[in-house]
């Protein structure tokens, strides 16, 4: 079998989008570093859950008081859609992302677990989140590169100061090199 020699482009963002606020910060406890979601990010996701539940409650009231099936289904359908959406938004925030020195692994419950000894570098990248009908703003990624060429996103948010600080502490914690790959973006 011929193995294709594909160069790894470290300057390429792993994720196209990212939030316009600080979504996580790293908390260190002895030999474990955890990524904790910030309250503000959870709060905005909860808006959807509250609205979804509110619409479901309205649907129940409409059916109870008026027996109006079409409006009940309409409200209920939209309520379920918004509630489901809110739950899917919350899920990534509550997933545990951990660098555990005792176990020697990194786990994010999305990618395959990585042995800490296989992490070569951390990289800070900048990108511009653009949209024709929405705000365009800078966003930043903290990615890690493993010995076998995997690139895994660790952090992805808009607060560069917090991300840089977290990246430095993580690099120190794991004794791994940190590279700043921020570059000028020309649209």
């Amino acid at each position: 079998m011929k193995i294709k020699d594909t160069p790894i482009d470290l300057n390429k963002a792993i994720l196209q989008k990212g939030p316009k606020f600080r979504s996580h910060k790293v908390i260190f406890e002895e030999n474990v570093a955890d990524l904790k979601p910030t309250m503000s990010s959870l709060w905005f996701c909860l808006v959807y859950i509250v609205v979804g539940l509110f619409l479901l409650m309205l649907a129940a009231i409409v059916y109870h008081n008026k027996k109006q099936l079409d409006f009940t289904l309409f409200l209920g359908g939209i309520g379920i859609a918004i509630l489901t959406f809110g739950i899917t938004l919350v899920m990534p925030f509550v997933k545990q992302v951990t660098f555990d020195k005792d176990r020697g692994t990194f786990k994010n419950n999305i990618d395959r677990a990585v042995k800490l000894e296989n992490i070569i570098t951390f990289q800070i990248l900048n990108k511009m989140v653009t949209s024709k009908h929405g705000l365009s703003y800078p966003c930043y990624e903290l990615n890690m590169l493993t010995k076998n060429g995997r690139r895994i996103n660790v952090l992805n948010h808009n607060d560069i100061e917090q991300l840089t600080s977290d990246a430095q502490m993580l690099a120190e914690f794991l004794d791994v090199e940190l590279i700043d790959l921020q570059h000028e973006i020309i649209l």
Partner: peptide, 27 residues
């Protein structure tokens, strides 16, 4: 006013929260 409050809550989460994934879903 009820329609308004529900829509305002959703708009609030997008424009104040700046959640790109929500805008993406709408798009």
């Amino acid at each position: 006013v009820i329609t308004g409050v529900v829509l305002a809550a959703l708009v609030f989460s997008v424009i104040v929260g700046g959640m790109p994934s929500i805008a993406s879903v709408t798009e």
